[in-house]
Structures are given as C-alpha cells and as structure tokens.
Design a protein around this nucleic acid. Sequence first.
DNA 1: TAAAATTAAATTGTATACAATTTAATTCCA
DNA 2: TGGAATTAAATTGTATACAATTTAATTTTA
Lengths: 145, 145
Amino acid sequence: MKQLKFSNQLCFPIYALSRLITSHYQPFLGELDLTYPQYLVMLLLWEHQSMNVKTLGETLMLDSGTLTPLLKRLEAKKLIKRVRSKEDERVVNIQLTAQGTALEQQAAETPLRLADSLGITATEVQDIKDAITPLLYRLKPALKG
Amino acid sequence: MKQLKFSNQLCFPIYALSRLITSHYQPFLGELDLTYPQYLVMLLLWEHQSMNVKTLGETLMLDSGTLTPLLKRLEAKKLIKRVRSKEDERVVNIQLTAQGTALEQQAAETPLRLADSLGITATEVQDIKDAITPLLYRLKPALKG
DNA sequence: TAAAATTAAATTGTATACAATTTAATTCCA
DNA sequence: TGGAATTAAATTGTATACAATTTAATTTTA
C-alpha cells in the first residue's frame, strides 16, 4: 500500500468530519449567537457552574492562547463573568451570568436537532464513539470523556 | 439521558481527536516546514501532479478563502506554482515545482512515523475508518475517499 | 448576440488554534 | 526566609477556517 496516497490517510476523514459536523451545528448555534468552541464552553459551565481557565483548557484541550480571547468574547456577550480568584490571584474563574444560565433553555433542543441534521442513529453514534474513544484516551490520558 | 451533558456529545471527541492527531504530525511536518493542511495539499499534488483550486477545495472541503492564502504560502516556499489556465482564465492550476516534487522523498516515512507516534494498529485504523466513513460520505457525497 | 446568470478565485472580516514568550503570583527549598 | 523554580493567564505572531462579498471570466438564454 502506498503510504502517501491521500486516500490511505486516516487523519483526513477525522479532520473533515470534525469540520463537517461543526458546519451542521452552525444554523442552531447561530440562533444562540455561539460558535462551536463557545458552545462547548457553555456546555461545561451549564454542567459545572464555575470552572477556571486551566480546567476548561484541560477538558477542551485548548490553551490560554485560544481560551482567553474566546472567553473575553463570551464575557462581551454577557454570558459569563471572568473573576480572578481570591485564594490564588493567578487563577481566573469563569462563572455564568443569569443570561448565560438562561441560555441553557434555548439550547436544550440543539443535540436532537443536530442528530436530525446529521441523519445519525444512536447506534451509529455509539459505534463512532467506541471506535475513536480508545485512541483519544490513549493519546490524552487526562481527558475526561 | 441529559442531552446537554458535555460527556454525551459526539462531536467533541472527533474535534479533539482531529487536533490531537494533527499535533502528533507536527514534529514530522515541522522537518518538512509544512503545516497539516499544507501537507494534505502536497499529498494530493504528489498523486495528481496538477489540480486546480476548485478541485483541491472539493477534495479537502476547503474554500478559496482558506486555500488561496495557503497556496500563496506554498508558492512562497517554492513548492508549487500557481498558473492561471489558458482555456479558462477563471481557473488557477496548482503545479509542483521540482522542489515540491523532491519533497515527496523526504515525506515518505511520515505515515509510518505518525502511526508509530499514535501507537495505532492497522486494525484500529480500519475500525475508525469503518465507523466514520459512512457518516462522512452521507454528509458530503461529493467527497472522494 | 448582448444582457443575465453562473462560475472560479480572491478579498474582507471574524474567530479559532497553537507555539513561544511574558507577566504576575505562588510554591519550593537550600 | 528569600531567591529559584513553577504555575496560570495573558500576549504575540502565524496559520488555518469560513461566511460574505467582490472581481473577472464564461456560459445561458431571451
């Protein structure tokens, strides 16, 4: 097998699928005025109320160079507050505003609308997760799925 | 199942894995002075000698807004030439330079080195491809795998 | 055949990504 | 305990992504 043949690459389908799924999110996230990475941050905050930048970064595998400006944009939209910790002044805690909390209701249908848009079944979701999760965990042991 | 729970999302593992694999390419592609998207373009050109921007864009699922500056950077590195078609002046053909052709030799070990870096087996590669390809094709019928 | 529609790239503007460096705060430890 | 090492964010700089618009060339069609 010719290793350099484009069609033999594994990474391209993953890279392409990632962008393709993100584009399917766009109409729904557009209604919420969120980008996909912003939506991931909001998902985590709806679940945990407050997280600091480091923990967000570990969970999303994004560094402060990506997160700091992203969080400033969420703050500008008044969805979150960036509060420097009293105990450790190096740490910035990200907290939901009332508006940010309220957005969860509007986002409630997003996963189902996305699944419908992708035309994907629960079985297929599980098959894909089962196939890629071992690799993901092996490459990034710290990641909490 | 709470749909908005972060851990229940399908897209995040794909998004994270895509970036994680790209980061594993980095040391090898760095030796070639290529980014991952630039490497994908070079893979296609090594296989097809010449492709126009539209065809590259269809294959990689990238638009001219991404490709035009990327191709200008490859041209600046003297790996490709951008030649406007005589038959249809709207079309820009991308051709390998001698230097771009020669780079294929240096890149020859990249797929094996990546597989080694990921610690992935041929079986696992196939499982992942099998799991995601149907979805990829369904969402983007034009894509040639 | 000439205006209308379409097409291929390029351009513009916004938002990630990420390496590398910087800044400021905290922890280590001789 | 006080300087060295470490840590958390922010900053800087480069390179994607992609929506929307623009430009120029080609094709359609009235």
